[in-house]
């Protein structure tokens, strides 16, 4: 789901950077409004490392192969910390793994970071109602993880389909993009389960880690 250099026209990558700058600014502002902005840093740091490494693990889904993203997990666990965390993770992935690119860093940050913020709000829906329960945490954890992937895939597809270069055989490329999008269905389920398991585990073992967001 990382768009590399040379795929998108320059105005699109510039718009990606502009949007990323705006969301980063808003996220940092939200973080600063917290009582103790530093409190979440250890968790954010560790999850950035997880996000960075996990894209290296490929899961074959014939005829293609996909990798975990974990943006839903980051969103649910970190709230507004997720966006800068994903931005940093993407930067290191682009520089070291050649996953994505530096010109497309802004676009990729939006594709993966924006759904993370949505996942945060989905996960917070578990606080509705009067009774906190493990089942609610599990359900909204799953939804946060799964919806984040769906949103990322939709953004990825929409951006690519709308900016296909005329030199290509459009139909072939379009079919390839849809194939890749469908290959993310299992990832959607896996990420939902992972986010759900982590959330339930933390609620049982260290519930204070979930309360802060």
């Amino acid at each position: 789901m990382h768009i590399p250099d040379g795929i998108l026209p320059v105005p699109v990558t510039a718009a990606g950077y502009a949007a990323t700058a705006a969301v980063t600014w808003y996220s940092v502002r939200k973080i600063n409004q917290q009582e103790n902005p530093r409190r979440e840093i250890p968790k954010a740091s560790l999850l950035t490392a997880a996000f960075f490494v996990v894209s290296w693990i490929h899961i074959p889904v014939p005829p293609t192969s996909v990798h975990l993203v974990l943006n839903g997990l980051l969103g649910a666990m970190l709230g507004y910390f997720a966006f800068p965390a994903i931005l940093i993770g993407l930067f290191f992935q682009a520089v070291m793994f050649q996953h994505g690119g530096l010109t497309t860093l802004g676009v990729n940050a939006m594709i993966m970071g924006f759904p993370a913020i949505i996942a945060y709000y989905i996960f917070r829906l578990r606080e509705l109602g009067n009774k906190q329960s493990v089942r609610k945490t599990a359900i909204f954890g799953f939804l946060a993880g799964a919806v984040a992937i769906v949103l990322s895939v939709v953004m990825f597809v929409v951006i690519l389909i709308n900016f296909l270069p005329a030199d290509l055989d459009i139909a072939t490329e379009r079919a390839a993009i849809y194939t890749l999008a469908i290959a993310h269905l299992p990832i959607m389920a896996i990420e939902g389960v992972i986010t759900s398991l982590v959330a339930v585990f933390l609620q049982r073992v260290r519930p204070e880690l979930l309360e802060s967001v």
């Binding site: 530093r38 409190r39 840093i41 250890p42 968790k43 740091s45 560790l46 950035t48 490392a49 960075f52 490494v53 290296w56 290191f92 070291m96 793994f97």
Partner: peptide, 24 residues
Amino acid sequence: QIVLMALCVVWGSVGTALYFSRRK
């Protein structure tokens, strides 16, 4: 090289986490 670089980044993150959890 990639594994080495990845380990450096992970260690940097763990170090950051340890530093800030200590301050806390």
